[in-house]
Design a protein around this nucleic acid. Sequence first.
DNA 1: CTGAAAGCGCTAACAA
DNA 2: TTGTTAGCGCTTTCAG
Lengths: 329, 329
Amino acid sequence: MKRVTIKDVAKHANVSIATVSRVVNGIGTVTDENKKKVQASIKELNYFSNTLASNLKKNSSNVVGIVIPTFTNEFFMQVIKGIEDHFGHAEYVFYIASSDDKPEKERAILKKLLESNAEAVVLSTIGGNDEFIEELRQLNMYVISVDRRIENERSMDYICENNRESAYLLTKELLKIEASKDIVILGGHQDLSIGIERLEGAEKALAEVGKDFRYYDGSYNEEQAKELFSSIKKDYPAGCGIISLNNTMVTGLIHAIYEELDEVEMLKYPIASYGEIVFQSIFSTNIPIHIRQRPYEIGREVAKLLEKRITGESSVPQTYEIKNSLERK
Amino acid sequence: MKRVTIKDVAKHANVSIATVSRVVNGIGTVTDENKKKVQASIKELNYFSNTLASNLKKNSSNVVGIVIPTFTNEFFMQVIKGIEDHFGHAEYVFYIASSDDKPEKERAILKKLLESNAEAVVLSTIGGNDEFIEELRQLNMYVISVDRRIENERSMDYICENNRESAYLLTKELLKIEASKDIVILGGHQDLSIGIERLEGAEKALAEVGKDFRYYDGSYNEEQAKELFSSIKKDYPAGCGIISLNNTMVTGLIHAIYEELDEVEMLKYPIASYGEIVFQSIFSTNIPIHIRQRPYEIGREVAKLLEKRITGESSVPQTYEIKNSLERK
DNA sequence: CTGAAAGCGCTAACAA
DNA sequence: TTGTTAGCGCTTTCAG
């Protein structure tokens, strides 16, 4: 069946296409009689407005892109939920895409988004595209960065958490409850704000008590963290406290620990986790302390800012920091 | 900065817009000299084609919608990954949206997709929109259903798993290893193929040995399953084998079991799980058997079919069934 | 091989 | 209050 257009409706209702447009958009003035006629025709012909054409004309779009590094992290799913809940699917449609931790893929997605005239993009970057992102912004595309800062000449809106402070608190607490143990840090992403800041926070806490540590790079990746545990075990056969600077690496660690150690042995490797994992409470003996993040709230804040910006309320770029909390077993 | 259009490029390169269009799309014939001039201008002016306009003219779009019931189920994440991997982000952009288990939201998303001229939509329905979906198909929108069948007059493409058989095998096996125990079934979604078929499979296995069972409706929902465990515990203080007909409910059960029971007590409630959960292997004492689903393969099959259909290779609607496997501890 | 011109479906002046 | 009309940026005949 051919798609019904505004023309068809106009003809059927015996009015001009302008009138149809008016009742569809609820803009301007139409007599009650005409309005009814048009609405009846719309129903009868089963007409749907073609957003493509409408957007082309209006030079806008109701598209907001959400670009995240991976689908398989509950954290980002909650961020998305926070954003969507705020808008209640009223006006915007969200393109959600995963860069799969690949800069080239992130770039491809951003390009598509630009070509699709996305009104805004919410970006949790994997890095390596700062220059391209700057180009997009030059083209008047509104970009808000989440969780991971983008370093640019022009500053931009940014919603994040108190990475440094959280990592500091987490480390401080681990040092308190496991004072006698050796300490290792499992980090990664030294090219991203998130990686740098968290490591700095942890290092600061260790420096304050003059404690030495060993650093392992797990790339914020589950598999890599799992494999790395073999090294940790070999390097510290007597055990050590592990500070994992992100949640997916903790998932990897837990897998490794349960595969390789028995119930007694595993207690030699207590984990301080930045972020929560599934079944967090069940693994509380392995993870005596952790940082509780607030991804849903991050999503809400993103949405609030988004709304402001899209409706044109332009003002100085803003950084909003969500505060995490420290949870003990 | 104003967006650069094809006009600007044409002017800058001293050719007509038609020529620019030709080199952009690699269609028709252009002299090498002109081609170079145009390409140089495109680069210099930083031109991006406006897909909106292009699609309007071509009456197409490179949009494929993926509508799933929830973001927080690893199963669907894997399906998405399978689809995306097949296309390698070459030609299409995927709108991924969650209906949040709400028919109205699903409907709203589908409407947006229609208005956006989506070329195809991959739908894992929550139900209640069969009529509306039929309308979309009348409007020439290609819909492929995944995991959950849509009952319509006109049959449609459908990728699924062998629900009945899997549930049957799972139940059979549980009866074998826990022959003496009472059995309960934790199911849900009796309005969806997935719910009906799995229950039928389980019931068949039970009927074959003349074993009675009790049915609990957990709506394929984690929280609900968690709460339901209290009832199960009360109804079967001596323990029982629990057949959970989907993975998220198992997550709920595990939470409940670990909160409410000690290590010995929990063994009285072995779970046969349809689908895998995070840390599946770690909970193998609680979940001695489970069905391993193949969501990634489902995604691949979806993509393959999608490709065929989009490129116009029309033929009879097709149902493709992926075979699951039974895993023992 | 190239350019002029029509038109995709819609919106928004502007005139009536 | 309504209809006419000029485009939005692009593709695609059709002449040249």
